[in-house]
């Protein structure tokens, strides 16, 4: 064994020692968090809680720190006032029927007659067109890098991508796809609350804050400046049907798993927006 091999061996050993201490360190780090609850844990473990037992599931007893879990979910629950609930419920049913009777059959038929690459192209085109909205909101949220990436993607896709139908920017790992900022999220970042819940015909669930955001975003959408005409309606419809064709089944899944679809959708919307704001 020459000197070089010995040093290699030593290095390897050192490295594995480092790895193991690294791991050990991590588990030590996580200990204080658990030991915070450990007095409670122990107390709960020693007192068998008869009422809480479900015979079908021995595991329910294993999960002792219920409060520990409850707090997590209570913190995650987004509550919002719903003073317009009768209007909202009406609009919910309207949108529901609109989806099942009109949009879904249209999107299905549209899928039959158009190849996948066409639908993807249309999707890319409309997405590319709304760059100003995402760009401005990235800036408003202080996300300089994301804004730069948005802008570069727009330039690449509009030129090399042929007016945005193609998506060559995706080939470049430096041009990260942004998380899709809008004005409602910007307001949320600034600490503005939801206000109240409102359901719009066609547009679906929203809140006061997000509706104001929608108005602002409207002015950042180039399509809003196209004169209202039959062409405009056709273009908008294409966008809507094309988008729907990518999401068939999602609303159905939500509805089927729900006991009260109106409440489920309201809650899902609020959770979804909360997550987007945090991103």
């Amino acid at each position: 064994m020459n000197k070089k091999q010995v040093t290699h061996l030593l290095l390897l050993l050192l490295f594995s020692a480092f790895l193991s201490t690294g791991c050990a360190h991590k588990s030590v780090k996580s200990l204080p968090e658990t030991s915070d609850d450990s007095p409670i844990t122990q107390a709960r473990e020693t007192i068998p809680d008869k009422a809480e037992q479900t015979p079908s599931s021995p595991d329910v007893e294993d999960s002792i720190e219920d409060d520990f879990f409850d707090e997590e979910f209570e913190a995650q629950q987004v509550l919002v006032a719903d003073p317009l609930s009768s209007w909202n419920k009406g609009m919910f049913h309207f949108n529901d029927k609109l989806y099942f009777w009109v949009l879904k059959p249209l999107a299905r038929g549209y899928m039959e007659i158009t190849p996948d690459y066409f639908r993807r192209g249309v999707k890319n085109f409309f997405y590319n067109l709304t760059m100003p909205m995402r760009f401005v909101n990235c800036l408003l949220q202080g996300k300089g890098n994301a804004a730069a990436s948005e802008f570069s993607r727009f330039v690449v896709n509009t030129t090399a991508g042929g007016l945005g139908f193609g998506n060559p920017a995706d080939q470049n790992p430096d041009l990260v796809v942004s998380t899709g900022e809008d004005l409602g999220q910007t307001f949320g970042k600034y600490g503005i609350g939801n206000g109240f819940y409102i359901v719009w015909p066609m547009l679906g669930p929203s809140t006061l804050r997000d509706s104001v955001g929608l108005v602002g975003d409207f002015f950042l959408n180039p399509l809003s400046y196209v004169e209202y005409s039959e062409t405009w309606v056709a273009v908008k419809s294409l966008d809507l049907v094309n988008q729907t064709s990518f999401h068939i089944g999602e609303y159905e899944a939500l509805k089927n798993s729900a006991l009260d679809p109106y409440v489920a959708l309201r809650n899902s919307y609020l959770q979804y927006r909360e997550k987007k704001i945090k991103e």
């Binding site: 595991d59 979910f73 006991l259 009260d260 899902s268 959770q271």
Partner: peptide, 23 residues
């Protein structure tokens, strides 16, 4: 063991909670 799942940030448990509370 899995105690919850989130799809696009939407937690299954939280969604059911909101419905059960309402009912």
């Amino acid at each position: 063991k899995i105690y919850d799942m989130e799809i696009e940030g939407i937690s299954i448990i939280v969604t059911y909670r909101s419905q059960f509370d309402q009912i």
